[in-house]
Amino acid sequence: MSRERRLQLIMPWAVTIGLFLIWEIACRAFNVSSFILPKPSEIFAATVKFYGPITGHSLHTLLTTLLGFAIAVVGGMALGLLVGASSLIYNGLYPLLIAFNSIPKVALVPILVIWFGIGTVPAVITAFVISFFPIVVNVATGLATIEPEMRDVLRSLGASRLDILVKVGIPRSLPYLFASLKIAITLAFVGSVIAETVASNEGIGYLMLAASSRSDVPLVFSGLIVIAILGVVMYAICAWFERRMTGWAFRGDIVT
């Protein structure tokens, strides 16, 4: 492995650890109260101390998020294909989709609580609605940008609309789909944690709210960091899938 490559691999860890070091040093140097900004060492101690509850709640959040995300992927792909395949549906639905996406999702949670009560269901739905939009837009973009010449080639072969969708539309929109999944999974965490904070008795969002009401600020931060780690791991999994499924979109070295 070359020096360059090794550096590339070390960089993310080095920067992250560096940030925590600066944080720790700054808190000590300026004598910041742990009620305002706890030192990383305190956050780490709180994480170890509440290891059991943190694991339980974060697993719950992870499941909630993944469930909402899964629904968003299926629904988003289906709607994206519809919107991208037909300009009629596109014209009809697009303003509504944008309007819906403009609504702050936290404002939906109280309504969801009225409908479904406090608990997991509102969190799943919030994760779904917040991560749904980028998937729809990306899949639709992939379909809408099929080259007109490609369409002509297929049509003059006698291809039906379904043929064009299956042979070109779907493969072509896959890189767009996977690119959107990376964004959508992180958004899904935002959604589920928001809902848990407002209306749930479980999950990392609830844990943080409970900790903050007890003024246990290190635990609140511990929750934040757990969410961040979950987000990064899920992002990495999505990115890995993206490379595996659509390697052609990244283009290797050109051989001439």
């Binding site: 049509r155 003059s156 006698g158 052609w248």
Partner: peptide, 18 residues
């Protein structure tokens, strides 16, 4: 309507990269 069994080639090769 579009007639069938025509071969078409354009300036842009429009090959599918996948």
């Amino acid at each position: 309507g579009p007639i069938k069994g025509v071969g078409m080639a354009f300036q842009n090769p429009t090959l599918m990269p996948w």
